[in-house]
């Protein structure tokens, strides 16, 4: 490949978007989750990260006229067990709109460790075009990286090295095949005493009365293109910011 080949002129066309299935959220996100980039969904447990992920897996199969990507989707999950019954329930709604069974085009791969993820990523180059995958969901990155590493300098350095490696590979894939990549992340509590680092538009957000921010720290925050936070207010409704 020559450097000349990298030049895309005129600019790439308007980015395709994947609908979230909710008109309000879609309008807030200007049409949905963008392709060619990594989108992160941050929320505390019980907010509905996995529900949203499952919804996206199904929505990706819709034709582009209905806000989908008319392709298959890949679900990499590190939180067990895989909610197959809920997915089946959701798929009954989509079934009426699709010529095939939506469950046939959802590929599921469990992840057991950070190194396992690094093993899986190189296979994407081969799998994605073959299976016509248009969406990759990793649910969740936090579960992979929060447990395995100790809180020492060298371990954390190794961890951020892996972050950049994973992110670079995902971005390369997203770009090459026009994929939408969605990752979910957990939250950590913000301590009042520590002058915590501010990443993104708000220092912290209030979710069910606690002050929280996204897990995995600064270097991971550099690895995603867009970050959405979902929170619980008064246990009645969720809000995205």
């Amino acid at each position: 490949m020559k450097p000349e080949d990298l030049l895309r002129h005129p600019l790439p066309a308007v980015t395709p978007k994947l609908t979230l299935g909710c008109p309000l959220l879609d309008r807030l996100l200007h049409g949905g989750v963008p392709c060619n980039a990594i989108t992160e969904i941050v929320a505390e447990s019980g907010t509905g990260k996995t529900q949203l992920s499952l919804q996206l897996l199904l929505a990706a199969q819709l034709p582009t006229s209905r806000g989908g990507l008319s392709g298959a989707s890949l679900y990499l999950h590190s939180e067990f067990p895989f909610p197959v019954r809920r997915l089946h329930q959701l798929s009954l709604v989509c079934r009426l709109e699709l010529p095939h069974n939506p469950l046939d085009s959802i590929f599921v791969q469990p992840l057991y460790s950070a190194d396992h993820l690094l093993d899986v990523l190189p296979r994407l180059d081969f799998l994605v075009p073959r299976l016509n995958i248009k969406l990759i969901v990793i649910d969740s990155v936090a579960a992979l990286f929060r447990g395995e590493f100790e809180n020492t300098g060298t371990e954390l350095k190794r961890r951020s090295g892996i972050f950049f490696k994973v992110s670079s590979k995902l971005r390369l894939c997203a770009r090459k095949f026009g994929l939408a990549v969605v990752v979910t992340n957990q939250v950590v509590d913000v301590m009042e005493s520590s002058n915590s680092l501010r990443i993104g538009n708000s220092v912290s957000l209030c979710s069910s009365g606690r002050r929280v921010c996204a897990a995995l720290g600064l270097s991971w925050a550099n690895c995603v293109n867009t970050r959405y936070s979902v929170r619980i207010i008064n246990t009645r409704g969720d809000s995205v910011s």
Partner: peptide, 12 residues
């Protein structure tokens, strides 16, 4: 304006 931006996307 968009026509006058030369865009390179770098992956490595």
């Amino acid at each position: 304006f968009l026509d006058n931006i030369f865009y390179f996307r770098i992956c490595t």
